[in-house]
Simulated scan of single mutants.
Amino acid sequence: MIRRDLHQHNRLAWDAVTPAHSSHKRDEAGFFRAGGTTLFDDEVHLLLGTGPEGHVLEDIRASGERPLAGLRLLHAPCNAGQDTLSLARLGADVTGVDISPTAIAAAQTLAEDAGIAARFAVADLYDWLPAQPAGFDVVFMSYGALIWMSDLDALFAAVAGVLKPGGRFVGIEFHPLAQMYDERGVLTYPYGGGAHVVGETGVGDYVAASGPALAPSGFLEGQVGFKNPHATHEFSWGVADILGAQLKAGLVLEVVREYPYANGCRIWPDMVETPGRRYVPAGGGAVPPLMLGWSSRRPA
């Protein structure tokens, strides 16, 4: 069931935390003007149908290629637009959609200051997607998007509806298994089925907790001790939920990948950063999969 009422509660939490996140990022516009990107190799491999190994972003920058040129791409939800603009830098004709007007205002300002062409819209995806024609070559979702979605069947049916025949739905997420653990690394939350989880402390300042890995333009101390006044409502989706909803929507799965590290985000406090802005648990040893990636296609 689509819970638009809870989506609006979450909007308040994102409106509150976005300025705190932005406060830690040094001169993002200058970073983009100089050719910077906030993307990781893993999502670019999925977008290009390559990999999963190799430093594809370094190769692209060295060659000056724009491998997404000619593609209409929807990034949803897009938060404050840094990844959206990075996708535009790869040549995509990109549209970013997010429920938070504060995040979209930040995205629009950054696009103007960086001189990167992109379109942005403030909307609940459950309202925006069904109103669009089948005009996108790619729909892209990433990193903590699905926990805010109250009905995957309805969402992915709408995603399939905006794709052109032959178009692809590409995503990379923190793994549902890893999301069963709280910020202390303690097994706490239910797995899958869309279980409703109330977060009394709201969206936190994970940029401050993650440091330079989430601020490649340069990390600033910024706002200290942020506390979100708005609780959140999250939804627990398992691997079968995520992949099954795509199949139910008529999409054909082409790639499914799992990763033993978390890009950018220190999801547990004892994690250590490794090359490539990747976090892994300290001490080594056995770890659960920390990210899940996929690519599926609307039949031509």
Rank of each mutant, 00 (worst) to 15 (best):
V139I: 11
S23G: 15
E112Q: 15
N79P: 00
L47K: 09
T38E: 11
F235H: 14
G225R: 06
R26H: 09
N79I: 06
M271A: 09
V287E: 11
A282I: 05
R257W: 09
V197F: 02
F226V: 06
L146D: 10
A160P: 02
G192P: 12
H7N: 13
G49F: 02
G285P: 11
G222S: 08
L68F: 04
Y126P: 01
C78T: 05
D124G: 13
H45R: 03
L46I: 08
R266F: 03
R257K: 11
A121L: 07
F140G: 00
P212M: 04
Q246K: 12
V122Q: 03
H233C: 00
Y279N: 08
H9R: 14
G171K: 10
Y191C: 13
D127C: 05
I104Y: 05
T18F: 06
R257A: 05
L129R: 08
L253M: 15
R4E: 14
A114E: 06
E28Q: 04
T95S: 14
C265I: 14
P260V: 06
H9W: 01
T201P: 00
A145Y: 03
G54S: 12
A103G: 14
T201I: 00
R72W: 06
F226E: 11
T18P: 02
D151S: 13
G51Y: 03
G167S: 13
P216Y: 05
F219M: 05
P269L: 07
E28W: 00
A209N: 10
T188C: 12
G54T: 09
R61E: 13
T84H: 09
Q8I: 14
T84Y: 07
G218T: 04
V224M: 08
I2V: 15
Y189F: 15
G167V: 11
F40S: 11
E273M: 07
G193A: 11
G264Q: 01
P101L: 12
G115N: 06
R11D: 08
L163I: 13
F219N: 03
E234D: 14
L71C: 09
D137I: 08
G35N: 07
Y189K: 13
H21K: 06
G70W: 05
A105V: 03
F219Q: 01
V186S: 11
G238P: 09
P269C: 04
Y126W: 00
S295Q: 10
G199P: 00
L39D: 11
G70P: 06
A34F: 00
A195I: 06
A16T: 10
G192Q: 14
P216H: 07
A107I: 08
W128M: 04
D41I: 05
M149Q: 14
T274F: 04
L292I: 15
K227Y: 00
W237H: 08
P165Y: 00
I116E: 00
A118W: 05
H175E: 06
G204V: 03
Q246I: 08
I242L: 15
F156V: 08
V186C: 10
A160F: 01
H230L: 02
T18E: 13
Y143C: 01
Q179T: 12
G161I: 03
A123D: 14
G250I: 02
A213Y: 00
A145R: 10
V97G: 08
L85D: 10
